[in-house]
Simulated scan of single mutants.
Amino acid sequence: MKIVLSLFFACMYFSCYSQSHDITKEKWHWGNPSKQDTTAGYAQVLKVDNVLYISGAVTTKITPEGIRQVYEALEKSLKSYGATFQNVVKENLYTTDLEAMKTYNSVRKAFYKGDFPAATWVQVSRLYMIDAKLEVELVAHLPK
């Protein structure tokens, strides 16, 4: 009996039940034929089922123009699958200067047209690109 229970719990722990671990991923990356950046190792947009995972768009300046450039790049990422900012359900914003971002938040808000997603804003000491000051990533849902 102990062996049977041990095998049962081992199967539970190691997922012995027949369950597929395969998912279908579609990718988009700025017109790149491989649909991903193989140097850094990422795709700009990854679609699984009806969910878009959008990698961060960056700027080196936290000004109205810099913020607008970030959100225009995100808009292009969304449009690659026919989505808009109204499909966005989660936004993660990373910046080296949170106070400056708060000052120009109206630029960001204009892209959402009053339909804001869940959002997290974090101040960091630096981003992947050493001179970047702002990076924003999104999760969006497409209609089923």
Score class of each variant (00 low, 15 high):
73 A>W: 02
63 T>E: 04
102 K>S: 01
62 I>V: 10
135 E>H: 04
135 E>F: 00
30 W>Q: 04
108 R>Y: 15
29 H>A: 00
106 S>A: 11
106 S>F: 05
139 V>P: 01
104 Y>E: 06
28 W>D: 01
43 A>Y: 09
30 W>F: 04
82 G>K: 05
14 F>R: 09
44 Q>V: 09
122 V>M: 15
25 K>S: 02
53 Y>L: 13
60 T>H: 05
82 G>A: 03
144 K>H: 02
137 E>R: 05
1 M>Y: 03
30 W>A: 00
48 V>R: 14
50 N>D: 15
11 C>N: 10
80 S>F: 03
110 A>Y: 06
141 H>Y: 02
20 S>I: 10
110 A>K: 08
95 T>I: 07
100 A>K: 14
120 T>A: 15
126 R>H: 15
31 G>L: 01
63 T>Q: 01
82 G>V: 06
22 D>Y: 13
38 T>N: 14
140 A>V: 01
118 A>S: 13
65 E>T: 06
107 V>R: 01
114 G>S: 14
58 V>Y: 06
95 T>N: 08
88 V>P: 05
114 G>H: 08
94 Y>S: 04
2 K>Q: 04
139 V>M: 07
28 W>C: 00
8 F>E: 03
92 N>D: 12
71 Y>Q: 03
2 K>N: 09
113 K>W: 07
103 T>H: 13
53 Y>N: 12
80 S>W: 03
138 L>P: 04
75 E>M: 09
5 L>I: 10
100 A>S: 12
14 F>H: 09
97 D>P: 02
118 A>N: 14
48 V>H: 08
123 Q>R: 11
65 E>C: 01
56 G>P: 08
66 G>T: 01
86 Q>K: 12
51 V>Q: 15
52 L>A: 11
8 F>Y: 12
135 E>G: 09
19 Q>K: 15
51 V>L: 12
